[in-house]
């Protein structure tokens, strides 16, 4: 009887509390996010390019490798970004290349983040021998110049696609993420609430995903953003040295062709300026967005 009474009395209180508490926390982040100029500017630039990458290809009738018109035309209403020295449409190449960059960023950055999370959580939570072994592996991959490794793998592949490139980048870019996540996990592992979960008999993976991971969500998001930008830059470098996709166009390949086929000597700036500018703006905005996110999530940094 008493129990029931108590429950009845408590219930409305609980119901009141929960809806109050939850939106408040989300509102707090939304509030600070909406006031953060860095986040707003960075996010808008990235979203703008994402939009161009998604809907841009619908505004062109050509294929990226089709020879469609007069050579070396400056930008005009007919050819929005001009044409190459072979008479290909630069706008078509640019929007297709943007798509490729975002695909590399999402897949490459995503794989790198996931591997980093798995290794970081395992090493940080388990500790001991597992930690030691994973640490050595991480350090070895960290020391290897990733680019040289990608170089030799890509050189031997006869057919290369954007997906394959992204996967290879993902599999070589994870070490610093693993190291950072391991350090965070390590410091969270000895907190009271994790001890409590362990004493109550929770399974390790459940502790990691319900107790530790939620406390690092912002950190994981920021890791992904950095990996996203990093993957785009690596792909550009790889494409530029001639190891890009063999069956598609990318921003790095555009610059490679531009340099190889005399865009500089002929002054065809419309061929080599847009791809590099887009990469710089996308990756730079991602970095600036990251600083903004840091300020949103970390109260200590807010007032600057």
């Amino acid at each position: 009887m008493i129990d029931k009474n108590n429950k009845k009395e408590k219930e409305p209180e609980k119901e009141d509390k929960i809806p109050q508490k939850k939106p408040k926390k989300i509102n707090e982040f939304v509030y600070f996010a909406s006031r953060n100029t860095k986040l707003k500017v960075g996010l808008s630039v990235v979203l703008f390019f994402l939009l161009v990458a998604i809907i841009g290809p619908f505004f062109t009738d050509y294929k990226w490798n089709a020879y469609i018109g007069p050579i070396s035309q400056p930008p005009s209403s007919e050819y929005w970004l001009g044409t190459t020295t072979f008479g290909q449409d630069v706008y078509t190449q640019f929007v297709e290349g943007l798509r490729a960059s975002f695909i590399v960023g999402i897949i490459g950055g995503g794989i790198a983040t996931i591997i980093g999370i798995i290794i970081g959580f395992t090493a940080g939570y388990r500790g001991g021998m597992v930690d030691e072994v994973l640490n050595i592996i991480t350090n070895i991959v960290l020391v290897i110049p990733t680019f040289a490794l990608l170089l030799i793998i890509a050189a031997y592949l006869k057919v290369r696609g954007i997906l394959m490139e992204s996967v290879f980048i993902g599999f070589t870019a994870w070490p610093w993420a693993a190291r950072a996540i391991r350090a965070q996990t390590f410091s969270l592992r000895s907190r009271e609430f994790v001890d409590l979960a362990r004493i109550s008999g929770m399974k390790p993976y459940k502790i990691i995903f319900t107790e530790i991971a939620p406390n690092m969500m912002s950190y994981l998001l920021m890791t992904f953003i950095l990996q996203f930008g990093g993957a785009i830059l690596i792909a550009t470098t790889l494409d530029f040295i001639g190891l890009g996709p063999t069956n598609a166009i990318s921003l790095g390949l555009m610059m490679n062709y531009a340099v190889l086929w005399g865009a500089l000597e002929f002054g065809n700036w419309w061929w080599f300026v847009p791809p590099g500018l887009a990469i710089m703006l996308i990756v730079g905005s991602l970095y600036i967005m990251n600083v903004g996110l840091d300020e949103v999530f970390n109260p200590k940094l807010r007032e600057m």
Binding site: T237, F240, G276, I279, M280, G284, Y287, V291
Partner: peptide, 15 residues
Amino acid sequence: GYLLTATPYMWLGIL
């Protein structure tokens, strides 16, 4: 600074 570190090396070289 952030834009500079985000610049692809070859693009700055080309420019």
